[in-house]
Each structure stands twice: as structure tokens, then as C-alpha cells.
């Protein structure tokens, strides 16, 4: 007689079902109670505006569980007068492995300390790999990455996934402990 070989793979967590589980009905009810409980808890938190709801309304809401050092959207830091700290040196554009940063520089003879500034500063998020090299290379601490991911959904296709200077100038210094704002006068 031919020996029957069970060729099914054996897993380390292969379930072993007792008669209670095999009876099916009680286990299904237990499952419903778990999912239903989570659903109701979330529902209650969301209705009452409490914290800890697991669902977030993208893109209006930000996920609560991004890591503190998550590399998300880029921001351009600002001088006290609100102009970008960026000097358009193009080091970020040069170091970028995906070559997604494009800067058009302008000349401002009235500010001899910062004669070069970015007239346009464009990042293509469809190609950005969020490596953070641009932040690391910047000699002026002019570009940083915040926790949130960029708000990319747009109503039309033609817009692409480019964010420009205005969208990147959203640094909120009041919430940035690493850099007091306005900057303190350092030693000359």
C-alpha cells in the first residue's frame, strides 16, 4: 500500500484546535467582540474629539505616530525678516542622489551680507527619496525636514508633485526648540 505523505508545510505557530475552537460559533462571536470593541472605542474617541483615535483624516490630519525624527516634508528656515535663510549655493541640489532639487538664484545688491537668494526653489516629491542629505550638507541650516509628510494630493494631474518656494517657507519657529526665533545675537 502506498504511503501517504503529508506535504503541507509545518509552521511553528501551527494552530492546534481543541473542540471548543472546532465548534466555531463561540470563536466567531469572540472575534466580533474584539473588532466591535475597537470600532466602538475609536468611534467614541472620534465623536468626543478625544485623543488616540487610530484613524486620521488624510490629508487634513497628521498621523499621530510618526517618529520624532521622521524625515518628511522639507522646510526652508527664515531670517528674522521672513526671507529664506537659503543662499542658493546649490549644495543640496548637487548632493541630492535623486536630483530633485532645482534652484534659480537671484542677486540682491542691497543686502551685501546675503547677495544671493533663491528666486525659485523647487522639489519634485515624485522622485525624492527622503534621504536627508540636503539637510546634512546645507552650510546655512536653511533646509530642514519636518515630521509631517508633504501634502501632495492635488485636484489635477498637471500640477505634478512639485513643491515650490512658497510651500516650503512654512517653518514654524515658535515650535522649534533647536532654533530660537528670532535668533539670538551670537558672538561676532
Amino acid at each position: 500500500m502506498k504511503k501517504v505523505i503529508d506535504r503541507r508545510r509545518k509552521y511553528w505557530n501551527e494552530p492546534t484546535l481543541g473542540w471548543w475552537e472546532r465548534f466555531y460559533l463561540f470563536e466567531v462571536l469572540r472575534g466580533f467582540s474584539i473588532t466591535g470593541g475597537v470600532f466602538l472605542r475609536n468611534m467614541k474617541r472620534w465623536i468626543t474629539g478625544g485623543k488616540g483615535a487610530l484613524t486620521a483624516y488624510y490629508p487634513e490630519e497628521i498621523r499621530a505616530d510618526y517618529a520624532a525624527h521622521n524625515r518628511g516634508k522639507h522646510v526652508l528656515t527664515q531670517r528674522p525678516d521672513g526671507r529664506p535663510q537659503c543662499i542658493a549655493c546649490n549644495l543640496c541640489a548637487t548632493v541630492c542622489p535623486a536630483r530633485v532639487i532645482e534652484i534659480e538664484a537671484g542677486f540682491d545688491p542691497d543686502d551685501p551680507a546675503h547677495p544671493k537668494y533663491p528666486k525659485r526653489f523647487e522639489i519634485d516629491y515624485s522622485r525624492c527619496i527622503f534621504c536627508g542629505f540636503c539637510v546634512e550638507v546645507c552650510p546655512e541650516d536653511a533646509i530642514r525636514m519636518v515630521r509631517q509628510v508633504p501634502g501632495l494630493p492635488v485636484p489635477d494631474r498637471d500640477h505634478g508633485m512639485w513643491l515650490g518656494r512658497e510651500e516650503l517657507l512654512t517653518w514654524q519657529p515658535a515650535r522649534d526648540p533647536a532654533k530660537p526665533y528670532p535668533p539670538k545675537e551670537g558672538p561676532k
Binding site: R99, E104, R120, D124
Partner: peptide
């Protein structure tokens, strides 16, 4: 060619 711009003016 490897530094071709696609977001700024094509003229560049």
C-alpha cells in the same frame, strides 16, 4: 545633460 532641469524654465 545629467543636470537637466525639469521644474524650472526649459530655457536654462
Amino acid at each position: 545633460a545629467e543636470w537637466r532641469l525639469s521644474g524650472l524654465d526649459e530655457r536654462h
